[in-house]
C-alpha cells in the first residue's frame, strides 16, 4: 500500500452519482487526520455489497469488502480485536435496513465504538431499481408495477429507540458530511450517520435540496432524547413536502462494548 489513501481504480459509479461527494468528504476527513499524525493502518474500513460497497476500491485503506448486510458485526469484531483501530463501516440502505437490519438494531444497543455511514439512495440500485425498506410509497419498478404499498422505515427513529449514542443524518454535501464524520470520530461509541442521497437513476425527480435544514443551526438540543425523536418524526422518507432535518439528532456517550467486554472488572460494576 502506498501513502495516498486514494486508488487508481476505475470508478464504476454512474456519472454524477452522489457517492462521489460522499467519497470526497471521507477522503478529506481521513487525509486531515493523517496529516495530523495518524497512519493509514490506524484506520480500518468495512463495506457491504451494493453501489456503496465500491467505495472499498476507491479508498487505499486496510479492511474488508464483506458480504451483503454483514458490515456491522464485522466492524465490531475488528474493534474488539484491535480496540485502538478507527473502524469505519459503509453500508447502503439495502445492506443496513433490509438484509442485516438485526445487526444495526443490536449495534445501537451494544455501542461498539465504530462509525457507520449508510449511503441511503432509497433503492436497490445495483440490482436495477427494486425497493428497499426506505423507498417511498408509490415507487414503481418492474417488480412492483402497481407501486410500493408498504410504508418506509424511519431508521433515525429506530436508532434513537434502540439507544444509539450518536445519531446523525446528512444531505449529500461535502461540508455537511465532513462536519458530522469529524464529530463522529471524536465521539466515543457507536455512531450512526445516514447520508440521504436519492439515486439519480431511479429517483430522477427527487429534489430534497430545498427541504433540508441543519439542526445545528437551530436551537436543537442534541442531548435531549425527546427533542431528537420529535425532529426524527418530521420526515417519513415518503412525503413530498415535509422539511428534512439533517445534522446530529442525538449524542450521549456511555461505556462502549469493547470497554465492557474486554475489561471484566468494568462489566461487573457497569453503570449505564
Amino acid at each position: 500500500m502506498n501513502n495516498s489513501i486514494r486508488t487508481n481504480a476505475e470508478s464504476t459509479w454512474c456519472p454524477g452519482c452522489n457517492n462521489f461527494i460522499l467519497l470526497h468528504a471521507v477522503q478529506k476527513v481521513i487525509e486531515k487526520q493523517i496529516e495530523s499524525g495518524k497512519r493509514k493502518e490506524d484506520f480500518g474500513i468495512v463495506c457491504g455489497i451494493g453501489c456503496h460497497g465500491k467505495i472499498f476500491d476507491y479508498l487505499n485503506l486496510p479492511g474488508i469488502n464483506t458480504l451483503h448486510g454483514r458490515t456491522a458485526p464485522t466492524c465490531l469484531g475488528m474493534k474488539l480485536a484491535k480496540p485502538d483501530l478507527n473502524v469505519i463501516g459503509f453500508s447502503g440502505d439495502g445492506d443496513a435496513y433490509a438484509e442485516g437490519i438485526e445487526h444495526l438494531i443490536q449495534m445501537a444497543r451494544y455501542n461498539s465504538d465504530f462509525k457507520y455511514i449508510i449511503h441511503n439512495n432509497q433503492v436497490f440500485a445495483l440490482t436495477l431499481g427494486q425497493p428497499t425498506p426506505t423507498t417511498e410509497l408509490g415507487y414503481i419498478d418492474k417488480t412492483n408495477p402497481d407501486g410500493v404499498a408498504i410504508s418506509p422505515l424511519n431508521p433515525v427513529k429506530l436508532m434513537l429507540v434502540m439507544g444509539a449514542s450518536f445519531v446523525a443524518r446528512t444531505c449529500c454535501e461535502t461540508e455537511q458530511i465532513k462536519y458530522v464524520l469529524e464529530e463522529a470520530l471524536k465521539h466515543k461509541g457507536f455512531a450512526y450517520i445516514e447520508v440521504l442521497q436519492p439515486c439519480l437513476i431511479f429517483h430522477k425527480n427527487e429534489d430534497y435540496k430545498k427541504r433540508f435544514y441543519n439542526l445545528q443551526k437551530t436551537e436543537h438540543n442534541k442531548t435531549n432524547f425527546e427533542e431528537a425523536m420529535a425532529r426524527a418524526d418530521e420526515f417519513d422518507y415518503s412525503s413530498k413536502d415535509s422539511k428534512i432535518p439533517v445534522g446530529i439528532f442525538y449524542q450521549k456517550e456511555r461505556k462502549t462494548f469493547e470497554e465492557l467486554k474486554l475489561n471484566m472488572q468494568i462489566a461487573i460494576n457497569s453503570e449505564k
Binding site: I64, L80, A81
Partner: peptide, 9 residues
C-alpha cells in the same frame, strides 16, 4: 462475521 472481523486484524 464478527469472528471474521477479528481474524482480519
Amino acid at each position: 462475521n464478527a469472528a471474521i472481523g477479528s481474524a482480519i486484524v
